[in-house]
């Protein structure tokens, strides 16, 4: 991979076309999910909600090179903010998503301010400590968060005043799909903007970027805020769709799973985050129902295999295959 993510082979020449194609693919996959699995829409909505979390993690890990095992802190902040707002009479779904995004962004700012003080392993440990601290706080502040019972009984208003968030979850699913597509498109623009390029530069060669007169902290903390907003939207979507917010939404387990999904799909490409989430959660949905320990063994084996044989994840491996095929066809 060349510096600053420039890709050979003309991929750079038509980025807009590529983006439109991936957005169309997401819409197509989403629509086919809607028609093929009408009984599993609540599960698919959860996949979308987690996909937003994994996308936000990709911004931090894949584009800034900061390893984090605490991303669920941002997701949980959004989920709890939306849940508390909804119980207190704010029921408009779009407003709830905005509240979740704001809460996630604020938490992201704080998390970034703490995490950017350290590097390497201590940084990773700080991310874990933050998510565990918020987990304990959410458990302790039972009057606000419902403690270990969590929040329940949220009743969001109908979407556009027309479509109820009912038991079938059609409205929630389509709402989530729309949110995902819009977010994905905006993030594509973001990572290709000069700001996104500076982030990539900081990941590949921080010394050179600072020699260009760019100071790292303001750039990275802004990325943390954006990442927090995306994760917060995911959390708010989860709260609206399931109408429950539990302690598991702000947990180390969810953070670790998000990182596994991201690496499975491939770092630093946004599409990888989506592929990883869908593949991971679908396999989990099937196998964990049979025996949770088989599921753990399988995830472990997949992780080891990725590190050894496919460090760029599923999407990176697919890209490489495609490039090989293209070269063979055009000697």
């Amino acid at each position: 991979m060349t510096a600053l993510g420039l890709k050979p082979d003309g991929a750079q020449a038509r980025p807009l076309l590529r983006d439109l194609a991936s957005i169309a693919l997401i819409a197509l996959a989403g629509a086919s999910g809607y028609w093929l699995f009408p009984d599993n829409l609540s599960f698919l909505t959860r996949v979308i909600s987690v996909a937003l979390l994994v996308l936000s993690l990709d911004l931090v890990v894949g584009y800034c090179g900061i390893a984090s095992l605490g991303q669920a802190a941002l997701y949980g902040a959004g989920a709890y903010a939306a849940g508390i707002a909804c119980l207190n009479g704010v029921t408009e779904p779009f407003l709830l998503i905005l509240i979740g995004a704001a809460a996630g962004a604020v938490t992201g700012l704080m998390m970034g301010a703490v995490m950017l003080r350290a590097h390497g392993l201590p940084q990773l440990v700080l991310s874990i400590a933050i998510v565990q601290l918020l987990h304990e706080a959410a458990n302790k502040l039972a009057w606000l968060t419902g403690g270990s019972d969590g929040l329940s009984g949220m009743l969001p208003a109908p979407l556009f005043g027309l479509f109820e968030f009912d038991l079938w979850g059609r409205a929630a699913y389509l709402f989530g799909l729309g949110l995902l597509i819009v977010t994905f498109a905006l993030l594509r623009l973001l990572v290709r903007s000069p700001f996104g390029m500076v982030c990539r530069g900081l990941k590949e060669d921080p010394l050179r970027v600072s020699a260009l007169g760019i100071s790292a902290f303001p750039v990275l903390i802004r990325m943390f805020a954006i990442s927090g907003a995306v994760a917060g939207m995911g959390g708010a979507l989860g709260a609206i769709a399931t109408q429950v917010v539990g302690l598991d939404s702000v947990s180390f387990e969810l953070s670790a799973n998000a990182l596994v999904m991201l690496v499975l799909g491939g770092l630093g490409q946004l599409t990888g985050a989506l592929i990883g989430t869908v593949v991971f959660m679908s396999i989990e949905h099937v196998i964990a129902a049979i025996n949770p320990f088989h599921w753990m063994t399988l995830v472990g084996a997949i992780l080891v295999a990725i590190v050894l044989f496919a460090p760029r994840g599923l999407s990176g491996t697919l890209d490489e295959l495609a490039r090989l095929l293209r070269r063979e066809g055009r000697p």
């Binding site: 670790a256 320990f293 753990m296 063994t297 995830v299 472990g300 997949i302 992780l303 590190v307």
Partner: peptide, 11 residues
């Protein structure tokens, strides 16, 4: 990642 993977396998 690899050591988390090994942990999952061991569990």
């Amino acid at each position: 990642l690899m050591t988390i993977g090994i942990t999952f396998c061991v569990i």
